[in-house]
């Protein structure tokens, strides 16, 4: 079965069509469940930028299959995406965005300097929304929740200094917020982030908060890993993704050590 996100060319680009090849056995095959999956992506706005965080594990069912997979991707000099869900679909989305950007660069023909032709985060987010929704209507979704980070733009497309953080899910639901989390992180990390979030957070504070959340997710989410990446978009520096690194963990908490299962309390392990 071939699953192609057609790209390039004006009409196809607005609504990338899905070509399904009929299997010899008859009938079409769709993605009915994700196979190789990444878990939570976290995102937070801070003073002067936006930060994303994700671990580098890609699971095959419950098997921790790839432990150095990068799930945070730069789309252009000032836009980042991060995705949980099917990893191959993330690769497909990333290829699509990169080739669209390449086409823009190659076909741009203007009397003006050509440094303002990149899509803004809001445009990437809105575009992904259209792609995801169209795919779900074909009953063949891209199985991802995608977080998009960058800077907000005016209706005409001019970039501003205001950070932008939005998410698109596998059926095309899209919304923005100051803090976002996908996957299991939406249950475990989001309440913690909402509690600690302030609009005027320093970069260091935001980073510490995200690392704490990732560590807690590693403790509680069986598909998470302590090997992580952090990425940020700032006005001056553009989009930057860190190399994967490992978080310190502490396993001597009483609840982790004592088996309370036998003494009639609320459990423990």
């Amino acid at each position: 079965m071939s699953l192609s996100l057609q790209n390039g060319g004006a009409p196809t680009r607005a609504l990338p069509s899905v070509t399904t090849v009929h299997a010899t056995s008859g009938g079409n095959q769709r993605t009915t469940r994700p196979i190789t999956t990444g878990t939570s992506v976290l995102g937070i706005k801070y003073k002067g930028g936006v930060m994303l965080a994700a671990d580098t594990l890609v699971s095959y069912g419950s098997l921790a299959k790839y432990k150095n997979a990068r799930r945070l991707v730069t789309v252009n000099s000032r836009t980042l995406i991060g995705a949980s869900g099917e990893y191959s679909d993330l690769q497909s989305i990333s290829d699509l965005l990169v080739s669209n950007a390449l086409e823009d660069r190659c076909t741009a023909d203007s009397l003006y300097d050509e440094d303002n032709n990149e899509e803004c985060a809001g445009e990437v987010w809105s575009y992904l929304r259209a792609v995801m929704y169209q795919r779900r209507n074909k009953m063949n979704p891209l199985w991802n929740d995608v977080v998009v980070a960058g800077f907000r733009q005016e209706p005409d497309g001019t970039t501003t200094d205001t950070p932008f953080l939005g998410v698109v899910d596998k059926i095309g639901t899209a919304y923005e917020d100051d803090v976002l989390a996908t996957g299991f992180g939406a249950y475990i990390a989001l309440p913690l982030m909402r509690e600690k979030y302030r609009p005027d957070m320093e970069e260091g504070e935001a980073r510490a908060l995200l690392e704490d959340c990732l560590r807690i997710l590693f403790y509680r989410d069986c598909r998470a890993l302590n090997r992580v990446q952090i990425a940020k978009v700032t006005k001056e520096g553009g989009a930057l993704v860190s190399e994967p690194y490992e978080l310190d963990t502490y396993w001597d908490f009483k609840g982790y050590v004592t088996n309370k299962g036998e003494i009639g309390t609320d459990g423990g392990w």
Binding site: A10, S110, N117, E119, G122, E123, P155, G157
Partner: peptide, 21 residues
């Protein structure tokens, strides 16, 4: 085309792209 662009990207169609198309 302009309406389509607004629906897909949420922003105004860049003139250069419309002119090329």
């Amino acid at each position: 085309e302009c309406l389509n662009h607004k629906y897909v990207y949420g922003t105004a169609m860049p003139t250069g792209r419309l002119a090329t198309d």
